[in-house]
Amino acid sequence: MITLTHIRKSFGSNHVLRDISLHVPKGSSLVVIGGSGTGKSVLLKCILGLITPDAGQIDIDGRQGTGLQNPDFLTHFGMLFQGGALFDSLPVWQNIAFRLLQGSNKLSKSDARDLAVEKLIRVGLKPQDADKFPAELSGGMQKRVGLARAIATDPSVIFFDEPTAGLDPIMSGVINALIREIVTEMGATAVTITHDMRSVHDIADNVAMIYDGLIRWHGPVGDLESAGDPFVDQFIHGRADGPITTQR
């Protein structure tokens, strides 16, 4: 369960998050939508603690503080980064099993490799891909490896940052379906940020739209089409004309 209360974040005179309050129930999948530069990534990094909010309160599983401030949080957390963020210098299996090879409770190399291969197969890749380096993989394969790394420790909270960015429509569909399957079978709490409406329909239980640093609309994905909000309506239908001004 993740609760955000009156979160604010500015960079100089740029007030990115002006007053964000959100609640993500345990085991549900929230998708945050909004145009480029509206602060979706900043919001995700604030929850995680990579960026410190200027004001407001974050509660994760009933404990006050960002992800990084809760000592046990990261051990039950996974994240798929927009560009994959795979470590170039490590082969695929070591990327996936990275956390399992660190710390006092680390697995043996062979056990970690077996688990990495299992996750690799779960995301639709072949065991022989385990020894390749990230630079040898296509964008879609890198995304799948990123997903395998995010679920390597069966986390209870998973963040997805633009999971389909840069992928072709078929691969986007594959990644969306994988995310939905994995979140459902693991019972994890998921927060996804995207501006891909297909991802919204495939992944979300609930949707929140950020506009001008505020939550413009928040509700079940089934109510999105009938939200009755001109900002939401313009965004989800990708109209150039409407209350959201764009530069041409």
Binding site: L68, L74, F77, M79, Q82, A85, R99, Q102
Partner: peptide, 16 residues
Amino acid sequence: TMKVTEQIDALVTLST
């Protein structure tokens, strides 16, 4: 390069 490709952030999320 690791910073701009979010590999540093990824390290943090992997408890490192």
